[in-house]
Design a protein around this nucleic acid. Structure first.
Lengths: 208, 208
DNA sequence: TGTACATCAGTGAACGCGCGTTCACTGATGTAC
DNA sequence: TGTACATCAGTGAACGCGCGTTCACTGATGTAC
């Protein structure tokens, strides 16, 4: 038996989501540190004061956006790393999955790439923590691979971070490619594959 | 015989530099997209209207900062890549050079990391272009290395981009480490070395 | 070298505007009996 | 089921403030003769 929310709670959540959506849209063309409270409420269509019923500040809203954005990234990372098949096939699939995620959630990707090094400390910290959790997940996934035999914990962590950073950087390249001539997408795909291939080679001969 | 600037020109350049310095300092705690014109002039100690004698807008000032910041990065990149010695020694030296650059120009590093994916388009473009030039330089440097025998142009480009991104990411990790417990620096050093080592291994066996 | 005029970096007053935050409010939803 | 009261998401007026930009200005520096 599922817990049904009261009408009031449901409406509140709906408004909250409207704030998150509106903010994310506005953030395609600016940084969080310049996002105005009134700007967001205007986009949602409520009074400025309604904002305070949901968030203390735009920084607070930003932290909520981090959870939403990296939540959607979670399944992608898992699928990417655990993709089956031989090395070349896995690389192809991984890059494809990244491209598809960027197509599906461009604003989320942009937000994370932008605010990871952005001007709002609590948001930077939230992203750092979430990415660290990601890296841990990736590390666990890597440890299961027979190729990881003989690897120590720190080496696995290093590789996991390398993959996570590489994914994010590739995602942001795909994002830029969205507003570029059509062949840019293929250039990014080729580059990303090549880089993953080099990491694969390094991985294979790490213990030589 | 060197061309000496008139008093007027010299004073103007001095004020312009004061604008750049003040802006860079203010940008340690916010993004360019929220930097105010009056905020900068207040920090410099001139009237708000003086700003327009030097820049059209804060975005324009941002582009000027890109040139300054990546200008200072230039020598570092060259030295890092061309560092002599065997592989392990080169890696140690490279990571050390990055750490030293971050100590010397923390605000420059922060600015580039922040605005690379930031909310101001012309600045993003300026950074992208400058980093592309960097990658070209690194590529030329790599091509001179005997290890590059048999590598095609695209593979060299891929490796160059990988190094440039890796350098920037490492630099921004060192930056964060500045306001963390002392041993964080060593953790970053160890991680960066390990990652460069993996890239080295991949590079060595690329043509296997 | 001295004089008369041109240039132009920096000034200071003024403008209209949107900002974040406060406060007492309204009226639909929730709850106790 | 009906009634009386409590809760609380969203309102709307008001505030003081700093913003970007305009404009005519000043006075030191530069230039022509």
């Amino acid at each position: 038996m599922s817990h049904t929310l009261g009408v009031r709670q449901a409406q509140k959540q709906k408004t909250r989501q409207a704030f998150l959506d509106a903010a994310l849209a506005l953030l395609e063309e600016q940084s969080l540190s310049s996002l105005g409270l009134r700007e967001v409420t205007r986009a949602v269509g409520v009074a400025p004061t309604a904002f305070y019923r949901h968030f203390r500040s735009t920084a607070d809203l930003g932290v909520a956006l981090v959870d939403e954005a990296l939540g959607s990234l979670h399944p992608m990372v898992r699928t990417t790393v655990s993709a089956a098949g031989d090395s070349e096939e896995r690389i192809k699939r991984a890059v494809e999955l990244i491209a598809r995620h960027v197509d599906g959630y461009p604003a989320h990707v942009r937000f994370i790439a932008r605010e990871r090094h952005g001007g709002v400390q609590p948001v930077r910290e939230a992203i750092r923590d979430q990415l660290a959790r990601f890296a841990e997940e990736v590390k666990a996934e890597l440890a299961d691979d027979p190729q990881a035999h003989g690897w120590n914990d720190e080496d696995l962590g290093m590789l996991a971070h390398l993959y996570v950073d590489q994914m994010l950087l590739t995602a942001s390249l795909f994002l830029e490619a969205q507003e570029a001539p059509a062949d840019e997408r293929e250039r990014v795909t080729a580059l990303a594959r090549r880089q993953l291939r080099l990491i694969s080679v390094g991985r294979r001969h790490w213990l030589d």
